[in-house]
Design a protein around this nucleic acid. Sequence first.
DNA 1: CTACTTGCAAACACTTTGCAGTTGC
DNA 2: GCAACTGCAAAGTGTTTGCAAGTAG
Lengths: 149, 149
Amino acid sequence: MNDQEQAVLSELRAHGNKLTQARRAVVHALATSPVPLSINDLYPLAREINEDVGLVTVYRTLELLVSLGLARPVHLMDNCHGYTLATPGHTHHLHCRQCHRVIEFDGCDLGPLLERIAQQTGYHITGHWLELEGLCARCQQASDTRPAG
Amino acid sequence: MNDQEQAVLSELRAHGNKLTQARRAVVHALATSPVPLSINDLYPLAREINEDVGLVTVYRTLELLVSLGLARPVHLMDNCHGYTLATPGHTHHLHCRQCHRVIEFDGCDLGPLLERIAQQTGYHITGHWLELEGLCARCQQASDTRPAG
DNA sequence: CTACTTGCAAACACTTTGCAGTTGC
DNA sequence: GCAACTGCAAAGTGTTTGCAAGTAG
């Protein structure tokens, strides 16, 4: 069990929620996945951990996690969105289009850009959402060493 | 009828599609809306233009437009996505959290940021998706002149 | 032991499909 | 006039709700 998972479980308890087998399974699946998980990805993973988990509970647990700010929806360019555990602070996602691994990064110094846009448009910008797509180092190597075509 | 609408209709014809009343209504609604429209927004707007338009036709027309690259889905932070006519080139959206007006902007010089991220992560970055949220000039004024609270 | 949580089934909402009538060209 | 298109209704899919049984604390 990694730190993030531990932290999420603690937060759940701190808000008066019971740490049931089902919730542990859902959180564990999220915590150990390198990619954001849609409900359809998450459900079978949670069942691998605890085969009694029902689909409805996955929906409800995700809803709970998101409402407490412990998980967040990630928009994906292809299907609509998946969920990851929220890391504290402001982060963005970099998504590998081949293996779908997602890493988070922070320090998106958009400040100058946002200021310029604000001046040009007259908007008072209060939030931004940036998501990058690309090929991770591993997948680049894989396609380099593999014969083209 | 604005240029964009004209262009979309021409493209439709060029691909051998008939310019029916229903399609004209859907395209007109999209072309004249400052915000991306979800199906649920689009349907009543299309019906204002032509009350015979059916919901199914709205779905099918959007599908057609997207498949021809004439419209594109826009992810929104709250509900999942709406559609706008595609403007050529690479644009981003700036969304007013109060009136939901959306304006497009280009010239998102993310180049330096993307390079830095690429170096830090080893990713080869192939695409990005940036969405800003804020208050448009009009809504700022409205809340300035309105008594606080 | 009690209240919160669960899983099931049914309800619900949204989207797609099949088909006969209609319309653009 | 013909093929493409439309609207309706029905089927299909994904999500939420009601409730009795189960479980954490």
